[in-house]
C-alpha cells in the first residue's frame, strides 16, 4: 500500500467514524465536536483529489463558520448536558423507507457509474483563477441566486429575532 492509499483510508475512516458518533451520540456536545472531525476528514479527502480550493473552503465555511456557530448556540442553551433528544424513535416506517430509497439510489449511482482512472500523474494546478472566472462567467446565474438566497435568509432571521 502506498502513502496515498494509506492517507486515503485514514481520512476516510476518520470521516465515517466521526459521522457515526454524530449520528448515534446521546450527548449533543459530543455530536457537535465529532462533526469537526467529519469536516476535517472530508477536507482531507478533497485535498487527495487535488481540489485544494474546495478543501480550504470546506474548512473555512464548515469548521470556522457553521461548526463554531453551532457549538456557540448549543452552549448558550440551558442544561446542555442533559438535553433529552432522540430518546425514542418515532415514525420508524416512513423514515426507514425514505432513507432506504436514498441509500439505494446512492449505491446504484456508485456502482453504475463508469469510473475512469487516469494514468497521467496529476499535478496540482492553480485552480482558484479558473474557479473564479467560471463563477463570474458561465455560472454567474446560480452564483447570484445563491447570494440572494443567503441575503433573504439573513433578513428573515433578523426579522424573526426582532419580533420576539
Amino acid at each position: 500500500m502506498d502513502y496515498y492509499s494509506l492517507l486515503f483510508y485514514f481520512f476516510a475512516v476518520l470521516a465515517v467514524g466521526s459521522t457515526v458518533v454524530v449520528v448515534f451520540s446521546r450527548n449533543i456536545i459530543y455530536a457537535a465536536f465529532a462533526l469537526m472531525f467529519t469536516f476535517l476528514g472530508v477536507a482531507a479527502l478533497y485535498i487527495l483529489l487535488l481540489a485544494d480550493f474546495v478543501a480550504i473552503v470546506q474548512v473555512m465555511v464548515y469548521v470556522g463558520g457553521i461548526l463554531v456557530l453551532l457549538v456557540f448556540g448549543v452552549m448558550l442553551t440551558k442544561n446542555i448536558t442533559n438535553v433529552d433528544f432522540g430518546g425514542k424513535s418515532m415514525n420508524g416506517f416512513p423514515a426507514s423507507l425514505i432513507v432506504g430509497v436514498i441509500m439505494g439510489t446512492l449505491i446504484l449511482l456508485v456502482t453504475r457509474t463508469l469510473w475512469f482512472r487516469s494514468d497521467v500523474p496529476l499535478v496540482p494546478e492553480n485552480t482558484t483563477k479558473t474557479i473564479g472566472e467560471l463563477m463570474l462567467t458561465s455560472y454567474v446565474f446560480p452564483f447570484e441566486v445563491a447570494a440572494v438566497l443567503l441575503l433573504v435568509a439573513v433578513m428573515g432571521s433578523a426579522m424573526i429575532a426582532r419580533r420576539s
Binding site: 465536536f33 469537526m36 476535517l40 485544494d52 480550493f53 480550504i56 473552503v57 474548512v59 473555512m60 469548521v63 470556522g64 463558520g65 461548526l67 463554531v68 457549538v71 496540482p124 492553480n126 485552480t127 482558484t128
Partner: peptide, 18 residues
C-alpha cells in the same frame, strides 16, 4: 508553497476557536 497560502492561513487559524 501552496498557491492558496493566504486563504489556507485564514481558514486553518479558525480551528483554534473550536
Amino acid at each position: 508553497d501552496l498557491n492558496l497560502g493566504a486563504f489556507y492561513l485564514i481558514a486553518v487559524s479558525s480551528i483554534a476557536v473550536v
